[in-house]
Amino acid sequence: MFEIVFISTLNGILYGMLLFLMASGLTVIFSMMGVLNFAHAGFYMLGAFFGFEISRRVGFWPGLVIAPLLVGLIGMAVERYGLRRVHRHGHVAELLFTFGLTYVIQQAVEMVWGKLPVDYEVPRSLDFPAFTVFGTEYPAFKMFELLISVAIFLVLLLVIKRTRIGLVVQAALSHPGMVAMLGHNVDRVFMLVFGVGVALAAVAGVIAGPALVTQSNMAGLLGPILFVVVVVGGLGSLGGAFIASLLIGLLQTFAVASNASLADLFGSSASAGALQTYLSDIWNVTVAQVAPILPYLLLVLILIFRPRGLMGTRET
């Protein structure tokens, strides 16, 4: 029993941190600019493919630096020449713009790299088991993933809460006129924020690429789980996203470990027969089977009972 709990906790934390890694850029852009960036997964994919291309030429480590920089530059260009123009027409236009952008990125990636997965490998220097518990190995690359994720969280938190840059950026969202009056270039602030958010997506891509599957449909398969993280955590709250990632990671991992079903719960009760007839469709479905759906259930519950999320500061 202890073994299962221990391993599940470990797996849950690792998965949660991977989720946070992927969601951090989305949160940054949303909390600083108020833009829900649908193209986030697209930039994540670009990061993975750039990382792959650089890693097979000069190695993984240069890729980890160069790929996010390149994708960040692309992001800034997108903000400067695309998003900024669309911004005038309100949030719906922004949403549609980023939504369309995902298709453009996907097609571009397919044209360059084809539709098959590419062989993006874990770097040699991290390709060994870090430690073994209860006979299960934990690869060093996963630990690296975890470290990067925590580091990103801490750095972002410090920059936003403790530095002048963070202050200006936050003020630019709520009082753009005043911030401009004080001599700051609000447009440039937004462009940089978008660039940073997109670069974070690319960092996630570079790191998740070798761990998962680097393929032209990876953006689509990443799916809505990141939006769950952001909404559950509270739209625009970095700490919230961090906690929500962990929560979702643990919830899902523990659910998979459980083989309980309604039949086990009520099977021995007096009304078992009647219950079984009424609930025949779900009578034997185990918790494990529905595990990956649980985050979405959580999303629905949060939206009903606490629409601003666990740590959100505003309703929308």
């Binding site: 797996n11 849950g12 998965y15 991977l18 998962l212 899902q252 494990a288 595990a291």
Partner: peptide
């Protein structure tokens, strides 16, 4: 397990 929805298979592997 659900079709094309699982990102992390380590809990399944643990089982």
């Amino acid at each position: 397990h659900p079709l094309v929805k699982v990102t992390d298979f380590s809990p399944y592997v643990a089982k």
